[in-house]
Computed example of a mutant assay.
Amino acid sequence: MNNASSSTPLGAARGIDPDLIAGIIIVLGAGALLTRTSDMPGMTALLPVTMLSALIVLGLLMIGRCLLRRRRRGDPEATAPAPLKVFDNARRFFGIVVAIAAYVAGVALLGFYTTTAVMIPVVAWCFGYRSLKGVLLADLIFTGGIAIIFVVLMGQELPTEFFLR
């Protein structure tokens, strides 16, 4: 009898929504990183400040959407979807976390361009994209685009490649 009452739409509305967790983590993380940009020169800080501010806005939108969805679930007239699982695929989530850690370590050890050029095809392959031509084209466009933006247009140096040290 207790199980039946906990599976009602109102019971589902009381669970923790993964969008709420993600939104809070994004806002707090981007806010913490945004405080570190105050020591940067103006042109250098432009991109990080813009990206982190956009992350904060998007995180707040995620939180707002979650709260609106929760409010609708509390309405007896509304039909609530099945309860959301925090991890639909925990293995994939932890794979993403490991890939991010490997990327950060790779940038420090190998350099930005080398790590980016290696990680794009590896991550694409892990997520099931098997077109070698498409992966190499995306890799060239992304890595080349970053080089053009930072080196040519902004005059900024990214972490030096291991073979140039």
Rank of each mutant, 00 (worst) to 15 (best):
G74Y: 07
G59D: 07
G29C: 12
C66I: 05
L55Y: 09
L33R: 02
L67R: 12
I24K: 04
R36P: 03
I24V: 15
V27L: 04
T37Q: 11
M51V: 15
L61S: 07
R70H: 14
T44Q: 15
C66D: 08
T79H: 08
I63R: 04
L60E: 00
P48M: 08
G23F: 15
G29R: 11
P76F: 08
G29V: 13
R73H: 07
A78Y: 10
A82G: 12
G42S: 14
A80T: 02
R73E: 06
L58H: 07
V57K: 01
L61I: 11
A82D: 13
L58F: 15
G74N: 09
V57Q: 01
L68K: 14
R71F: 11
F87G: 02
R36D: 06
P81H: 03
V49K: 05
R71W: 13
L47K: 01
R71S: 08
T79Y: 03
P41F: 11
T35F: 13
L28K: 01
R65V: 02
R69I: 02
I24R: 05
P81L: 05
L34C: 09
G42E: 08
L68A: 10
M51C: 13
A82F: 05
G64V: 09
L67G: 06
G29P: 13
R70A: 05
G31Y: 00
D39K: 10
L46M: 12
T35W: 05
T50H: 00
G23Q: 10
L46P: 01
L67A: 08
G64M: 07
F87K: 04
M43I: 11
M40C: 03
G23Y: 14
L67E: 04
R71E: 04
L58Q: 08
V27T: 02
E77C: 11
I25P: 13
P76Y: 07
R69V: 04
F87Q: 04
G23A: 06
G42M: 12
D75C: 10
R73P: 04
L68D: 06
F87P: 03
D75P: 13
